[in-house]
Design a protein around this nucleic acid. Sequence first.
DNA 1: CCGCAGCTTGCATAGCTGTGCAATGAAACG
DNA 2: CGTTTCATTGCACAGCTATGCAAGCTGCGG
Lengths: 341, 341
Amino acid sequence: MSSEARVSSLDVARRAGVSRSAVSRVFTPGASASAETAAKVRRAAEELGYRPNALARAVITGRSRIIGLIVAYLDNQFYPVALERLSNALQERGYHILIFTAGNRDEDISGILQELIEFQVDGIITASVGMTNDLTRRCAAAGIPVVMFNRGQPGSGLSSVTSANRAGGAKLAEFLVAGGHARIAHVAGWQGSSTGVDRKTGFVDRLAALGREPLDVIDGMYDREITMAATRDLMARPAPPDAIFAGSDHTAFAVMDVLRGELGLDVPGDVSVVGYDDVPIAAWPGYDLTTIRQPVGRMVEATVETLLAQIEAPDRPAQALEIAGDLILRGSARIPEGYGP
Amino acid sequence: MSSEARVSSLDVARRAGVSRSAVSRVFTPGASASAETAAKVRRAAEELGYRPNALARAVITGRSRIIGLIVAYLDNQFYPVALERLSNALQERGYHILIFTAGNRDEDISGILQELIEFQVDGIITASVGMTNDLTRRCAAAGIPVVMFNRGQPGSGLSSVTSANRAGGAKLAEFLVAGGHARIAHVAGWQGSSTGVDRKTGFVDRLAALGREPLDVIDGMYDREITMAATRDLMARPAPPDAIFAGSDHTAFAVMDVLRGELGLDVPGDVSVVGYDDVPIAAWPGYDLTTIRQPVGRMVEATVETLLAQIEAPDRPAQALEIAGDLILRGSARIPEGYGP
DNA sequence: CCGCAGCTTGCATAGCTGTGCAATGAAACG
DNA sequence: CGTTTCATTGCACAGCTATGCAAGCTGCGG
């Protein structure tokens, strides 16, 4: 409530008639202080508007309670939703998110790692970022725990939390085949990412197990424009697909926009479309998209638990968690007999 | 490249055969150091993987280069887009965003202010948050500059950056009247926010100036469900509206989903719909929404400039900036003669 | 009444860095 | 070659807090 000069523990100590140590102990859980001095200190702190300096505290305890979040892009709604939940989950545990936006270029990521070290972050979460092996090595060298959210990197020694992407891709393959589709195409997610590769692999392998093969697989790079171009290309062929699996909901919307908006086709009458993620928009009647749900809540919980555990015990081995996701039936694809309620 | 022990400037100094001061000066722009020692120091730092401790630096300079961002929700796509740009703009200037998610309840905000002070943030940006006057006073007391993004609070003494919301509302009123609509309704943005109030006021006032009045004005709270309920209510009346202005694009999508998805109506054949923001989805063929563009890029620039200027010169008076936004013509509303190209 | 145990509290130090000040060295100039 | 000047560098201190250690005090039991 005083003027704008920053107020330190010394000011509080003087006003309360005690030493700095006493003030520090009052604000340190687990330290011993008598009820009387605690009251005096709290009152003085209140009057002066004092709060302990978390940065100075971090310098001496070696714990900043800051988590660095590296995120490449936010246009896929899955990531803002996850960001909000991550922030809430970490806030509840006394941690905070320092955000870093980066393209997927190596030099971006490299520079960001420097800054993460400068800010003494206790841990790192990456989202929608494909890490390089170089970065992997440097993180390990810096001794900062890393959890990759919605990405994995086998053999990197880094923890990761993903949904069961291969299983999800397989479910969609079965679903589309059961729906009686003849020409099934896949506009895949970025093949530089584990999610993009795993979904594709699970999808193609299950098709093969059913004695089928995809009409075509094109890398849509998780990009709206590229996916739209790929869709136009597919549909311009003599025998166009009657079902398209897009690598994410965000790109499935792009596919549907081309089919309905540009080509005047009916979904699912002419072409069935399925996606992956179950972002909120997928439930809107405008798209009503059949998709695999990525359980954001549980993925976030697992990410936070894993990261904090690794911060507590740095020697704990990294673990790659996969969380199963359900097929969500909606109106964008023919529903075969036996599915649904 | 070494083991995981944190490496300090003393380690680098020893390895380079110089004093701590020399190391500090090499990493402080503007300080004097000979080319020779700079080379020695940089080399030793490289070998040890040293980076200066930004937290310790912040303790002594009194500048953390951390900006606190308070955001209430991210489901309206306008905010993730803004967040990404804010982060980029600040990163370019050597600042970073510490993120705080909060509901709009007073106790949330109050607790967050404590944490903002603890982390010694140099400035605060609020987005999608309605601040209380109490918070206003406490921020001023703490001496931390605040810029409200996409919100204003007249008379609070806080800086703000918004688009010209009254002017935008007026443009939409004119546009809908020129389109020959007979019964014009407004499902407004949250009336506890300046944007919601200003857009409504500009809209209603211009209607009045044209000798018209709205069929009804309902507070949609910027919430999808509430807006959908309001739309159902409007359309169930004996004389339903033939044009609806929704307080944001995000809620305009909700209106369209009810009209087309639930009621089987044609947009704009039966009802014209307009929104506000011009988020990316508004341009997708699935919605193709006529709206007022909020120029995110310029709003972000202005926010960053204002905040940094206020950090440099704390006595600088607060300013409320308004940035004009254009009417973007698309297919969700009848286009009157004389508009368009 | 005395000794001991246990809780409090102040002192001093640690944890990392920026920066004023003075000393050192070299370079430049006469 | 002598002197002045300037850049450079080390020392010491500041900035804010946590914590081990020892001293003080209180209370309890003998």
